[in-house]
Nucleic acid binder design. Sequence first.
DNA 1: CTCCAGGCGCCTT
DNA 2: AAGGCGCATGGA
Length: 315
Amino acid sequence: MAAPFIRSSFSSAATCAEPLPASAHATFQVRDYDLGATLNSGQAFRWEFRDKGWNGILGKRWVRLETDGSCIHASVGEPVADWNWLTDYLQIEVDLVAILGTFPDNAPMRAAVGSCRGLRLLRQDNWECLASFLLSSTKQIVQIRQIISVLCERFGEPILALPGHPPAYAFPTAERLAQASESDLRACKMGFRAPYLLDTARRVVSSQIDLDRLKDLPIEAARSELMELPGIGRKIADCVLLFAYGFPAAFPVDVWVLKAFRQLYFPNRRPTTKRLLRFSETQFGPNAGYAQQYLFHYIRTRAGRTASTHEHENP
DNA sequence: CTCCAGGCGCCTT
DNA sequence: AAGGCGCATGGA
């Protein structure tokens, strides 16, 4: 694989034995990286666009990202020496062109890639991703964000942001949520998902499932283990397999993807989810999940435009 | 007001 | 195996 286009602001030619000095800022050269599409495509729920940059929380670190197209500039609340946690999350080193080259060559796929080239799949923390998508069922993305925001305020550990920014909280640990009551969780407006989240947190804490071990399993085995958890079905399991564990063939089918495929590939039929999964396996190549995210983002943003133009259209 | 949202679990056929 | 329904909450 090609050398990563990474430059920290303190990347002097220091020897390996010499630790890099800690810094609150770093810059990374990027190619084909659409930061806005990536952070706002419904795979992560805590990024906020403020004053031409994205503010977010990764683990116990507050981070702000700004981009000019060829670089991503990062600022953190507390100085760090090692930035691998960020480059890994953003998947900066991934050769996107090689991935795009495996996508099926058809009109809908070309349109989707053309509309948001540079969209990346993130590599998220497995527990945060699992809990977040558990809360996603039959909710709009704005509401998912709201629920998670309240959950973090109420159960997350306070962390240090840059001066001038609102208080920040880490995503709550499974240990902390396992100690909560169902009504505590319902107070975060998550409704019927509260007992699912509570039971899942308790199973993680009791090692009934080992989330770190799943990355070493074949995708089918990892999926089966996730689907043992209450509130985790095929779709949410595939979101976690794709967005946290990086299984590139995981293929979440939600109402949007269902709608997109009916419209784009099956105009005169009404394929079931199972039929779509088979279609993805045979027609979408080894990075089916990556392709799916392009279609998801494409149709979701396009639907927004057509809906609003329709609303304002004159007779 | 109604309809629906990055579903799932459970219950009928 | 496949299809239908209830579930909490709040945008549109």
